[in-house]
Design a protein around this nucleic acid. Sequence first.
DNA 1: TGGAATTGTGAATCCCGAT
DNA 2: CATCGGGATTCACAATTCC
Lengths: 369, 369
Amino acid sequence: MLRGTKKVPVSSKLPLDQILVGDCVEHMNALPENSVDLIFADPPYNLQLRGELHRPNNTRVDACDDAWDQFSSFAAYDRFTRAWLAAARRILKPDGAIWVIGSYHNVFRLGAALQDLDFWILNDVVWRKTNPMPNFRGKRFTNAHETLIWAGKTEAGKYTFNYEALKELNDGLQMRSDWVMPICSGGERLKNRAGEKAHPTQKPEALLHRVIVGTTNPGDVILDPFFGTGTTGAAARRLGRHFIGIERESDYIEVAQDRLARVVPYEADALKVTGSKRAEPRIPFGSLVERGLLRPGEELWSFNGRHKAKVRADGTLIAHDARGSIHQVGAALEGAPSCNGWTYWHFRRDGQPVPIDMLRQQVRSEMQE
Amino acid sequence: MLRGTKKVPVSSKLPLDQILVGDCVEHMNALPENSVDLIFADPPYNLQLRGELHRPNNTRVDACDDAWDQFSSFAAYDRFTRAWLAAARRILKPDGAIWVIGSYHNVFRLGAALQDLDFWILNDVVWRKTNPMPNFRGKRFTNAHETLIWAGKTEAGKYTFNYEALKELNDGLQMRSDWVMPICSGGERLKNRAGEKAHPTQKPEALLHRVIVGTTNPGDVILDPFFGTGTTGAAARRLGRHFIGIERESDYIEVAQDRLARVVPYEADALKVTGSKRAEPRIPFGSLVERGLLRPGEELWSFNGRHKAKVRADGTLIAHDARGSIHQVGAALEGAPSCNGWTYWHFRRDGQPVPIDMLRQQVRSEMQE
DNA sequence: TGGAATTGTGAATCCCGAT
DNA sequence: CATCGGGATTCACAATTCC
């Protein structure tokens, strides 16, 4: 950069597309604040609730009768949770967001901690497993789902949400908060050299695909503080996003490195996703009049045929008892708080009503040429 | 009882099949400890709604903005929650259990409080709504589920779980932790004299039916500290269980009294049968991409080999001069009004064209397992 | 009277850029 | 920071009205 006033992109200070070895809180504290677009975290589900049921002398602790012990283990989990969540929040960009995943053992601690740390929950999402492990003893319901929480850094944050892309992924219906997906098995399930599963809770890449397509843009930086065998990194790399992984266990890192080396990113033009109408260039209604697509004095009709208005030379409308923009007049005539005049108003062509939005499309396509 | 040593059943001291008017903590504190078999609680969700919300057709959403759902802070909500949960726990029998229901606004507070008070979580259960209210502004996922938590009074408690009955309810398959049910509407939705909904958040009786059949026995006592319009009482009475309802609002109590008076308990042979099996599950094309069965950037060919298109990451196709869903692009390329993309498009496997419908069949068979 | 079309509605933390 | 105003945004049912 020649000009000293030009800002260096914060991502240039980040260890992109790497796995950092060690404690996630320490590593996150060493990263610059407000630098990461998304965090995906699959933290340990259950620290020691079962494992600590024995005292050092091997006598068994009746945990449910021992309120202090019970409390202390949840308290320890809460301390751990709040430490890494606070570190994660610092490095998130103001418009960033976080996903966490858990089961009933830990997800209530996670959610409460998120709220207490001023994250703003956007949705909880249920991963409904098509092929869960049955309950062998017949003592409870089949534990057939896990819960994800999606939260913005703050209430005011303008989080990324690719609504139209997600709608396409769901065959034209808006995506719901329950996602049906199989667990990670078969060829996708990574094995170690001994042929055993390399990680006890490997997540399916399909889950990360939906998270990443839905809530990030190409080129974004996604950090996973509990990287494991690298599902987040693999999906990010495939989808043209950057990742930062943090992991303590060298066995997992080894498997993840192998995996990432084999990932082939999708081609760039396949990553373009159905866009939002808000992103399209704004066309003032008046420009239709200027271009002669509508004539001052011409009559427009509401979509339901109940109201009409006349076009004026300055691109406003005048009706029986209302005047103003296409939106304002539509809203006034319908007694509605607002109105999209582009779809509300129709003109006549060959006797047929045509929405004026058709003319806007025409202008937009002319602009692209 | 002739013999003085014979214990008087504790339920004889209980105000069975009645609605207690007033604060639930005070009423629960006045009941004998270890006396109730099950508690079902649908507490305020603390929705924290801001302004008004309108549907795209400009009608206003009738929000749950009642005073009883307003809390000044999470800390205030937690104090409220822990107070009623502690009172509830005292009156539960040692082998008793509790169900609570909530949304992401409050359910993490509920779950954490249950754990902190030494309840023992048995399952979280997701109510997947078949007909939720959509997200009108396209800014989040459709909030299509609510969460129930089922917990024993203690870890050691021998809670009631009618495994076989639930299995029968589920067509011979073990009951899962996700329950698919419609919201309460139509004739079941109670109205007040003005014809408005009598309660903003009335729960479907089907939900309570499953809870009660699955986790109580006939003759058990079920207490609901937030009785509302009495769904718990109605389902309990129908199923031959006792209820105790607690409610503050006289409007709700009046409706609930009417309702309960009309409930006719089931006879054994009058139990309703679950509905017929649904049609084959819909598989969005996008889920094939998410699952890695098709790769973004991969080329598809029309069945006649005349056209090709590329898969994008959001499950849309892009061809030379068309983009959109598999059906839309097929129709555009053929100049046809419509097109079944599942049979139109083929991918290459071992040099041979294979219809993408083959992949859909594969996903369907995985879902049935 | 029957089918089609229209209207109503549900626990909702629901916009965003320019000035 | 607040205000203004353009204009983007919905799925499954049930109930009602229309033809």
